[in-house]
Nucleic acid binder design. Sequence first.
DNA 1: TTTATATATTTAAATTTTTCGATGTATTCT
DNA 2: AGAATACATCGAAAAATTTAAATATATAAA
Lengths: 94, 94
Amino acid sequence: MILDIKKVERISKALGDPYRLKIMEMIKKQNDNWMQCACIADNIDLAQSTISHHINQLVDADLLIAEKDGRNAKYMVNKEVVTAYVNFLNQLKG
Amino acid sequence: MILDIKKVERISKALGDPYRLKIMEMIKKQNDNWMQCACIADNIDLAQSTISHHINQLVDADLLIAEKDGRNAKYMVNKEVVTAYVNFLNQLKG
DNA sequence: TTTATATATTTAAATTTTTCGATGTATTCT
DNA sequence: AGAATACATCGAAAAATTTAAATATATAAA
């Protein structure tokens, strides 16, 4: 998968915030890879709407895969996109 | 080299702008790895002070190594930091 | 040593991002 | 159906970032 430059910008921007980095790290630590939205919110000291906004940016950048489960939402790290981003970065090394 | 989370944030933020991404890509394409500041400026349609500001953010994040050569400045991609950033990202995959 | 050149810094305006309260929507529970 | 729960969206204020003009600094050239 090859990312266009606009997508690389979106991904970088999404990762350029301490709360969003924390969300990514929290989700990666989950056993079955998925993490419930409510559980993320429990671990971050921000208003619910703000957390929703942050998660949205990560989903928009395709760094997270979202899934609805009744009235709950759960998220998973999109490994394919992380890999594609890493590939872009490795190119910067020549 | 292991990056702390604040550093990862700085690097991500630095890469989250189209002009700064363009600068990184331009520099990587140089034959001897170094690129003159004036040459960067020639290829970007922004005020000199703005370009200086952008380069500064890349240097602050340690994505670029700066060197002074008389009244000129030249820059090189810091491969070690890019590698460390890539390592952090790979961890996000579990 | 005056002048020109290359880059950095300062200041301030414009834009974008972050944040939260209020409200909306969809789903589950009673 | 009505109440409660989980999450999303809207609107507005606060904070951070981007931008450029003006100015400063340091080096090279004449």
